[in-house]
Nucleic acid binder design. Structure first.
Length: 490
RNA sequence: GGCGCGUUCGUCUAGUGGCCCAGGACAUCGCCCUCUCAAGGCGAAGAUCGCGGGUUCGAAUCCCGCACGCGCUACCA
């Protein structure tokens, strides 16, 4: 039997890491077994819909490289893939359940339910529907419903016995039926609840494995009961753990959870995020951590997932992103940088930005960035149309503090040597600066730092000689002279 | 309150009765390399395997109890 799995988000917001990680594992399982991965929109709560979120959900999946075989945007053999367009299916299932005595109409008003719960809580009893409408005769119920009296359909949970289901991570889980109340399967607006929609759709769409968050464990027995009452074979269940925020507690918007697309906007690579999410809560062998999607898929096994929650390790994600950035071919990296710089360089830098310059600078910073965002402050001086002379304190630094005249003569020596260079390349520049240091008796490192700050305005930069080679002789000499003037003015 | 799930270095994990007085990775610290910063190399520190009982020649691994954390207990998913 071919594996068919699904990602079934509610279009009520954007996917965050915890949510997408379950989808990612599901995707891995599909690819591992040559199965089908599809997307189904669960928009049965009309009150919580957020416009645009369906698009953002699909965009997130696409960005992460999780392709889907069937879905709301591309159809498939079981279309439609949007629950609000499948209402008749749920309604007829509910009617079948009523007819078979597995469900009944309930006319209790929300207010009564509310009161009932308060009372139960006050008496330290487990809250739950008391089954009052169970006793309404079917004919009467139909008549009242036909007359337009608002009602919901509840599933009739057996008072006795227990229900067992198997979870791929946790083994058999058994729950006493008596602890489950008669839950609503069809709401008064004609929409199904999750429970019914899950049973109907996952059967209709021939889903083989259902992986979802572990908050669904308590209601899984309900689903098994539903499947059986409908005459369906339940799918295989996998309940995945949540991702925790560093401080503890579920990762939430307030607690550092970011939408997937925010990672894109902050300069993470989709391959790195994918890899990171795949291995938080899963390890193929205890050693391997860096994997392509294909490698992860080849090794993936639901039953290896960790059943306990994992804390989100932002440091490790950054590290991993750096690993991916470093192994990117230079041309690809330059392309990424170009797009990034286009967006983030100050407005006074002419657009489009100098593509050749980006390519020249890329190898100097490849091993220095962890995020694409790091590139901008690292290379902005290469692109700036003009650079202000450095501030005195920054220029002198520790070695020359209080003795600017020494810095001035060192700088002049550097100018002299640099001017004499025949072919302006990094080797020649290094030779010139070392010669200048030797002539003046300065420590090479001190002179280098003087030049670094003079030429770039920064104390931390890509390698000096390569940097100066790219900046060009005229600009370098000009800037060093300007810096010398700053030092001399003291 | 009831029901359920979970518990190995700060963090992610390996581990399914002896190879584990617990291995790898991130982070941390030190050394090396070095023009700054990185990257890289080497090394250190870091877990009485939640606690208490059992079973066994032998337990992180099996059983029982407890503690703690989390989840569910909606006409939300």
């Amino acid at each position: 039997m071919t594996v068919r799995v699904r990602y079934a988000p509610s279009p009520t917001g954007e996917p965050h890491v915890g949510n997408i990680r379950t989808a990612l594992w599901t995707w891995l399982h599909a690819r591992r077994h040559g199965g089908v991965f599809f997307v189904r929109l669960e928009d049965t709560d009309q009150t919580r819909l957020v416009p645009g979120s369906a698009e953002r959900i699909l965009e997130s999946l696409a960005w992460l490289g999780m392709d889907w075989d069937e879905g709301p945007d591309k159809g498939g053999p079981f279309a439609p893939y949007i629950q609000s367009q499948r209402l008749p299916l749920y309604q007829s299932a509910a009617e079948r359940l009523i007819a078979s005595g597995n469900a009944y109409r309930c006319f209790c008003a929300p207010e009564r339910l509310e009161e009932l719960r308060n009372e139960q809580r006050a008496n330290h009893l487990p809250p739950g529907y008391d089954g009052r409408c169970r006793s309404i005769l079917p004919d009467e119920a139909e008549a009242r419903a036909a007359a337009g009296e608002p009602n919901v359909v509840r599933f009739l949970v057996p008072d006795e016995g227990s229900t067992t289901f198997t979870d791929l991570l946790r083994g058999d889980i058994t729950v006493e039926n008596a602890t489950q109340d008669d839950f609503v399967i069809l709401k008064s607006d004609g929409f199904p609840t999750y429970h019914l929609a899950h049973a109907v759709d996952d059967h209709e769409m021939e889903v083989t494995h259902v992986s979802r968050g572990d908050e669904w464990i308590p209601s899984a027995p309900r689903h098994v009961l539903l499947f059986r009452a409908l005459g369906y074979e339940p799918p295989i269940y996998v309940h995945t753990s949540v991702i925790l925020a560093p401080g503890g507690g579920k990762l939430s918007k307030r607690h550092g959870a970011k939408a997937i697309l925010e990672y894109r906007d902050e300069g993470y690579l989709p391959d790195a995020l994918f890899n990171f999410l795949a291995i938080t809560g899963w390890s193929p062998d205890g050693e391997t951590e860096i994997m392509t999607r294909a490698e992860a898929a080849a090794a993936f096994d639901f039953s290896q997932l960790n059943a306990h929650p994992a804390t989100f390790d932002a440091d490790k994600l950054e590290w991993l992103n750096g690993v991916y950035l470093r192994q990117l071919p230079l041309a690809d990296l330059a392309e990424q940088f170009a797009q990034w710089l286009e967006r983030t360089l100050p407005a006074d830098v002419a657009r489009p930005i100098d593509r050749a310059l980006v390519e020249a600078v890329t190898p100097l910073v490849q091993e220095r960035v962890k995020l694409l965002a790091d590139v901008t402050p690292m290379v902005d001086f290469f692109f700036a149309p003009s650079l202000a002379a450095p501030a005195l304190d920054a220029l002198l630094g520790k070695p020359y503090r209080g003795r600017p005249e020494v810095a001035v003569s060192a700088l002049h020596a550097a100018i002299e040597q640099l001017t004499a260079i025949e072919v302006w390349d990094s080797t020649a520049i290094e030779g010139a600066l070392r010669a200048a240091a030797e002539h003046t008796g300065e420590k090479p490192g001190d002179l280098f730092m003087l030049c670094r700050v003079s030429v770039t305005g920064k104390a931390v930069t890509p390698p000096l000689f390569e940097t100066m080679a790219i900046v060009g002789r005229d600009a370098c000499l000009e800037r060093i002279a300007a810096a010398a003037k700053v030092a001399a003015s003291e």
